[in-house]
Write a protein that binds this DNA or RNA. Sequence first.
DNA 1: AGTCATCTAGGC
DNA 2: CCTAGATGACTG
Length: 743
Amino acid sequence: MAKLQEKAAPILRVAVDVPLYRLFDYEIPETIAAERLKPGLRLSVPFGRVQKTGYLVSLEERSEVSGVRLKPIAGVLDREPLLSPGDLRLLHWAARYYHHPLGEVFASAFPSGLRQGRAAVLGRPARYVLTAQGREFEPGLLQRAPRQKLLLEAFRQCPDGLSEAELAASVDNWRPALKQLAAKALLQLDDAEIAFAVAESPPVKGNPVVCNPEQTAAVAEVCAGLDRFGVFLLEGVTGSGKTEVYMQIIGKVLERGLQVLVLLPEITLTPQLENRFRQRFAVEIEVSHSKLTDAQRQHAWLSMQQGSGAILLGTRSALFTPLPRLGLIILDEEHDASFKQQESFRFSARDVAIVRAKLANVPALLGSATPSLESLYNAQAGRYRLLRLPNRAGNAAAPAVRLLDIRNKPLQEGISEPLLAEIRQTLEKGEQVLLFLNRRGFAPRLICHDCGWVARCTHCDANLVIHFREQKLRCHHCDAEQPLVKSCLSCTGSTLRPLGLGTERVEQILPGLFPDKAVVRLDRDTTQRKGSLENYLKQINEGRADIILGTQMLAKGHHFPNVTLVAILDTDSGLYSIDFHAAERLAQMIVQVIGRAGRADKPGSVILQTRHPGHPLLTTLIREGYNGFARQALAERKAAALPPFSHQALFRVQAGDPFKPKAFLEAVKNLAAAGQTGGTLVLGPVAAPMAKRAGSYRYQLLLQDANRQALQRLLDRLLPEIDKIKKEKNLRWSLDVDPVDLY
DNA sequence: AGTCATCTAGGC
DNA sequence: CCTAGATGACTG
């Protein structure tokens, strides 16, 4: 007893949400029992002159910091840590691997309310039920309020009432209508405790779908490995029924009483998957992405953390959500670059998900019609198990793809004569046409026909894009915009011409070419308003659109069953990029766009307009498909010792001063060279491909090594030293481990 | 990052 | 002599 009292109270080592590569030590105040303190707890700590949330990393016997400078923590925010030891190991791994400050990595694991120190209490989700009056009420009387009618009918189907999440999934913009119904005393907030009947019923409802042999085999193979770590790469052509495979495997995991994490690259893809999951599974499904409110995300986080949620569907920000009974991680569209966070903590949700699966000893399932070269390489090397779904479901034929040489052919706003004829034929049959052009706006530049002046952004090395309808010139790299000028700013001449092609320009010419045909344009400019994308998709699927025109958002996930002709207007942009990732991106995009055609019983055809019909990327892709392309691209990467045959880390620097970034990176390079024992390549510093952007001058330094550990060791040594380089004013640097683009 | 003490150029 | 804005030091 006496011994225990003599022993000094332990020191708390704490990670604070600041961009500093070190931890901070605190004392335990007498009011707090030391036994309570476990790693992972959220603490409130005095930090400088403010209070901040800190995360307890470890308890130490002594501190390097002299006792007089140590402060006591102000409080403990949780009774028990919200993160499990496994979660903590994952965060430590990620901070080390991506060389990012631990406090910021911890912060990224929590929803913003918990980050700010709010209590981790899970309110019962609001639920509504019909009143006696509401049960009697005839929905037909609400003819003039269609949304209220819709809601009332939905409640009629569900005598147990509906939660806000369920309402959001079935009726959009439900809140005002619900308010109206409540005001009419037809609805009320359900204050009865809900019996958890859901937990009693089997997790899978609805009819099992009959699968083809490949689907069945894929399901069986993953299910045979459910009790241990393993990575499965599900390569399924568009329309091959990947989702059904996911759902059958998820069903098996749910039957074991375990949780499933499903990650998607983009928010726009969550509603359709959520709907399918809700139809199939009678379990609590939580959704988490950045378009939800903080309260919604915190609710999803806590439901999963406390174990009541069974499926978490989210984007990369959902990756670190605690899942005490994790049984499976699924990552759909695994090739998508959106899984890589592109600022501050630059983690790859795909790569971290695999580490998470490994730490939790559960399988990870990666799915894509166009797997990344890294994943295909891992499959070849035997690290991943490759599962293939080569056939479209329902015997839909693969579309016929052909290159259309447009050299020396007259173009009308980017559309050649032969393509025009094909479009006309398709429209005459009453079928839909999809035109893909990966550039929004009217035209990518405005040029003076007299003197050659081009409208440039003053903050970036970029041309201003013409937005004709809005009469604006806009930079797509910063938020600069200005009115569309009528005369040249250099020679005052008035013969200004739009040069090049954007979706807005193509949209303008289509009514003249195809009178009476309905055109829908889908790009960031037309879908910015909430709900407008959904409306357009509905319009298309109900057959109220003949020509669909759009940018890459067309290539992602959406199904257009009545489209039988797909044309890529400008295939060539991206064929000759300086970034070695560009070829892979382009091939994936082409294949994804091709996948939009001929999904149902109608055979589809695809036309790629190109001025480089002999380009090996295109010819290989047409002749041998994505796999042929991938084989060739991997051979090229190997010959050039590029990833995945080597590993990269990129230092990026930007500053308002044009010379300081380079000087800073020279210093980093010298540091890297001093004491360099391994063979890590240090390339640069070079100006970024867009040297000036949003008013900053940008440089980069690339490190490359075939040995990942050697590269990591160099970074381990480099980072503390870089921290010591006297920081120039207004200079920002960041490190990107495994960069997915070099811009 | 956020805060604050210190320095500096320009205003009266 | 005063002060707004830039600069740098520091966070336990």
